[in-house]
Amino acid sequence: MCGAKAGGPDLAGVDVANETIIQGSVTRDGEPVNGYVRLLDAGGEFTAEVPTSSTGQFRFFAAPGKWTVRALVPGATVDRVVVASQGAQTEVPIAV
């Protein structure tokens, strides 16, 4: 296992200017955590969920607006509220 990386996975081939990206990494004491990250809309409804990568990273392609990013890992659930915009990469580092 290599160490944790900040930011999301590689964006090669993605039309970044047209996407509304929310990305980040999940760490515990600086080390990447294997688990899941869930995206909830402004009403708290599930929109998507991804497993973290081996380096703890995750990414969503959302729409502009307010979202909640929820990390689900063994023994912990952590929420972060973010505001995303088109053409930008909203970074969400989550320490559990």
């Binding site: 996407e19 809309d41 009403g43 409804e45 998507a48 990414r59 969503f60 959302a62």
Partner: peptide, 19 residues
């Protein structure tokens, strides 16, 4: 689908690019 896909704000679940 999620409310944002239903309403037309998104075209795919948000772990996929929206193109």
């Amino acid at each position: 689908r999620s409310p944002d896909e239903f309403s037309g704000r998104l075209l795919a679940p948000a772990h996929l690019p929206q193109e």
